[in-house]
C-alpha cells in the first residue's frame, strides 16, 4: 500500500472502524430476521424462550472471551429443549400445545437438566485437568531431559555450555534449564 493511499484511508472515517457500531448493526439485522420467524413460529419460540433461560443466565454470567461456559450450556440446553419442541410440533404447533408442553415437568427437567450438565462440566473439569496436566508435565520433562542427556553424550558438555552460562548469569539459584 502506498503512503498516499494509507493517508487517504486514515483521513476518511468509516463505520467499520467502530467495532461497537458494527456489532449493533449485526444484532439489529438478526432481530429483523428472527422477529418474523419468531412470530410465524410462535409456539416454538415460546417453548424455546422458556427452556433456554439457563443459557441466557450463562450468557450474562460468562464474561470470558469466547464465552465457553455460555456455549457449553447453550449447546446442552438446546439439546435438552429439543424433546419439548418436538412435542409442540407433534401436538399441532399452536399456543395450546406450547402451554401443554410447558406444563410438562419432564420437558422442564430435560431442558434444565441438560443445561445443568453444561454448568457441571465447568465445575468438575479444572481439578481433573490439573491432575492430568501435572502427570503429563512430569512425563514430558523426563522426555525432554533424556533428549538433553543424549545431546550431551553425543556432543560433550560444551553443547550445554551456553545454557549453563546463562543460568549462572541469571543467578546461582536459577535452574540450569532456564535459557
Amino acid at each position: 500500500m502506498s503512503r498516499s493511499q494509507a493517508a487517504r484511508r486514515q483521513a476518511s472515517p468509516k463505520w467499520s472502524a467502530n467495532p461497537g457500531g458494527r456489532r449493533l448493526w449485526r444484532t439489529l439485522s438478526m432481530v429483523v430476521l428472527l422477529l418474523p420467524a419468531g412470530a410465524v413460529l410462535l409456539p416454538t419460540t415460546l417453548v424455546l424462550v422458556v427452556f433456554m433461560m439457563p443459557t441466557l443466565a450463562a450468557w450474562l454470567v460468562d464474561r470470558q472471551p469466547g464465552r465457553a461456559l455460555a456455549t457449553s450450556v447453550c449447546l446442552l440446553n438446546l439439546a435438552g429443549s429439543l424433546p419439548g419442541v418436538i412435542q409442540v410440533w407433534t401436538a399441532g404447533h399452536d399456543v395450546a400445545a406450547a402451554q401443554w408442553v410447558l406444563s410438562d415437568p419432564l420437558t422442564w427437567l430435560a431442558a434444565y437438566g441438560a443445561a445443568a450438565v453444561g454448568w457441571l462440566l465447568f465445575a468438575v473439569l479444572p481439578p481433573v485437568l490439573r491432575a492430568h496436566h501435572a502427570r503429563s508435565t512430569a512425563r514430558r520433562i523426563r522426555v525432554l531431559q533424556n533428549k538433553q542427556e543424549t545431546l550431551e553424550k553425543d556432543w560433550g558438555p560444551e553443547v550445554a555450555a551456553d545454557v549453563k552460562a546463562a543460568a549462572e548469569a541469571d543467578g546461582p539459584g536459577a535452574p540450569a534449564q532456564a535459557a
Partner: peptide
C-alpha cells in the same frame, strides 16, 4: 554442533516452561 546447541537450548526452554 551449532544445531545441537540450539536444540539443547530449545529443550531447556521447554523444560523451564513446563517447570
Amino acid at each position: 554442533f551449532a544445531h545441537a546447541k540450539a536444540q539443547y537450548a530449545q529443550l531447556a526452554r521447554d523444560i523451564a516452561w513446563l517447570e
